[in-house]
Each structure stands twice: as C-alpha cells, then as structure tokens.
C-alpha cells in the first residue's frame, strides 16, 4: 500500500543549527503515528516539513506517493492543527471552518453543509456564530480540528494539540480524539507530542525522537513493553534504568541478584540496562531477602505513593506502591525486581 506520508532522509538546518537529522518515516493511510520526544527533539520540525512550512535542507517528502518537497503548503492538501490553534481571530467559528473550502472556491451550498457537518462532528454546532476569543481552550481546539477536517484531508497533522489545555480537559479531549479517530478510518494522522499518556491512548505507532534524531520507531504496545533503547524506556513509561551484566542469553545479574531477561537481539559486549517500570518495583521492610536500599523520599500521589530509593549497590530507583505501611524516609528496605523486564541499549 502506498504510504500516506513518507519522509526520505529529510534534514532541516537553520544556519549552523541542525533541527532535524536525516529522518526516514512513513505513515500508512488510516494509521496514527505519534512523534514523541522532549522539547528540541525535532518532532515539530518534522511535522512542519511535512506541512510545507519550510523546505527541508535535504531529503524528500512524499504524500500519497507524490513528491511534494517543492510544493507550497497550499498545494499539499493537508489538515494542520497547531498547539496555539491559530484560529483566525477576526472570523467567526463558521468562517474559520469554512476558510479552506472557500479558498478552494467550493460552491456556497456545499460549504454550508460541510461546515455544519464538521462542527457537529466536533460537538460545536451551537458555537458557529462566536468569535474565537469567546471560546474556551478546549472549544478552540475543537474548532481548529473542524477547520482542518473540513477540507477532507487525507492526512491530518496535529502539533501538540492538547498541550495548552489543563489536565482534566486534556483527558476529555483524548477521548474526543479517539472517537474522531474511529470516524475517520482512512485519514492518516501524524501526532506530535511530548505526553506519553496521549501517545499510548491514541497512536498505532510511535516514533521516539531525541536531539533532532529518530531514536526508535515501532508499534505502541511493543515500544512500551519492549523498548530497545534506554531513552525510549525512560521517556515512555519512565522506566528505571539499572545497569546489569549479561550472564547468558536469558539471564542478567544486578549485584548478587540474578534475573531472567532476554538479551536476544542485543549486540554482544554492548552496555545494557534493565528497564524497570516503577509500578513493577516491590518494596518492603528490610529482611535481607532482596536488594538492600534506603528510602530517600515519599510522595503521596492520590492513588498510591511514589518512593525514591537509593540501592546500596549505588543506583537510584523510583517505585510506585499502593501503600507504605511500616516504611519511613531514611529506613532500610528490601527491593524486589521481577523477571522479564526489558533489556535496553545504553546510549
């Protein structure tokens, strides 16, 4: 199948600054690919190169198999939603949504129908005569999505669309996006974010980026459960990274503790770490049965507790536990780590 979006060795330089190193990526029709990474990782740059907001220094951008590298944004036929929504402040909601259709000289009757249709899709039918400044952040975000969808784009580019919203509204909008997603089965979505929660909920595949480079790309579940890179493990799921020695193909050693972990696929001799999710770390009063550690800090998180621990082996570790009965800051504790945690390459 021809990819809806394809980047071939796309690089972007601003003077001497490299904003994006040669990036290879493709997105299938109907697929949602998330570009995940911290600020400055190059994810928004990649998206803007696809949108045509600037021309790549090197490489090619293809949409539906057609090379659009040299085409201006208005000839790419994409829907774009940006972090600030970029609604036109002097236009009413309906005019904002109709903008793309009118720019394409769509007949008035069809414009009216389509505007009503997409406003209904995003639940904003009652707001068509309002100006953007009369809307909340979440409502503006819906209008921005409606505006992008109005032109029936084969590809929707979403650049941190929820980052300006508060936590509660963000969760609500994730649910809305999921619903939208199911109603647009043929639309490819490129979703840029630094929020792993949004990514896990929305993306079919994730491309993890760091320092203007692609670190790793793969299906969401696989990347979460079996990351190959330490950066992916720590950024996606906040894994603890514990340096270990490979004993054999199925065993590693952490201090005196032997753990089952598959080192298949890892180059021999390369430094590796065990990626341990905080919720998989066990903590109990010291009895000498596990790895000895000292409890450094306790944070109550509502549904449980976050513990900062210092292993006597010399590493720091974070754990998330439902209760802290009998544990206090400064006390000595036993830490247990389950088998089958992923082994990752240390960058």
């Amino acid at each position: 199948m021809t990819p809806a979006v394809e980047l071939r060795e796309v690089a972007v330089h601003f003077g001497r600054t490299v904003a994006l190193h040669g990036l290879d990526l493709s997105v299938a029709p109907g697929e949602t690919l998330a570009l995940l990474g911290p600020s400055g990782s190059g994810k928004s740059t990649a998206l803007k190169a696809v949108a045509g907001f600037f021309r790549p220094t090197a490489g090619r951008v293809l949409l539906g198999g057609r090379d659009v590298t040299d085409l201006p944004p208005n000839r790419r036929g994409l829907g774009v939603v940006v972090q600030s929504y970029a609604l036109f402040p002097h236009m009413k909601v309906s005019d904002n949504v109709a903008f793309g259709l009118r720019a394409r000289r769509t007949p008035r009757r069809i414009v009216a129908e389509r505007v009503a249709e997409v406003l209904s899709l995003v639940g904003m039918s009652g707001f068509r005569d309002r100006y953007p400044r009369q809307l909340s952040g979440g409502q503006q975000q819906r209008v921005a999505i409606a505006r992008a969808l109005a032109i029936r784009p084969p590809v929707l580019l979403l650049d941190e669309p929820l980052s300006a919203l508060d936590a509660a509204l963000r969760e609500e909008m994730v649910a809305e996006l999921l619903r939208l997603r199911s109603e647009l089965p043929d639309t490819a979505i490129v979703y840029v974010t630094h929020d792993q929660g949004e990514v896990l909920a929305l993306a079919d595949r994730i491309a993890v980026m760091r320092d203007a480079r692609l670190v790793e790309v793969g299906p969401t579940s696989a990347l979460y459960h079996r990351p190959a890179e330490s950066f992916t493990a720590s950024f996606l799921g906040a894994s603890n990274l514990l340096p270990v020695e490979v004993v054999d193909a199925g065993t590693v050693r952490l201090g005196e503790l032997r753990l089952a972990a598959s080192s298949a696929g890892l180059p021999p001799g390369e430094p590796v770490a065990l990626g341990v999710r905080p919720h998989r770390v066990g903590v109990r009063e010291y009895s000498g049965a596990g790895l000895a550690a000292r409890l450094v800090a306790v944070q109550w998180r509502g549904t449980g507790f976050r513990l900062d621990l210092e292993l006597e082996l010399g590493h720091r570790l974070r754990a998330e536990v439902p209760a802290v009965d009998g544990l206090s800051v400064g006390s000595r504790v036993d830490v247990s780590i389950p088998d089958a945690c992923p082994l990752v390459r240390v960058a």
């Binding site: 000839r75 940006v82 970029a86 720019a103």
Partner: peptide, 12 residues
C-alpha cells in the same frame, strides 16, 4: 502560525 495554517488549508 494562522497565516501558515491558512496556506495549508489551500489558500493562495
């Protein structure tokens, strides 16, 4: 950004 988005919507 509004101008860039407007362009991406197909406006000259």
């Amino acid at each position: 950004l509004p101008a860039a988005v407007a362009e991406s919507l197909g406006a000259s």
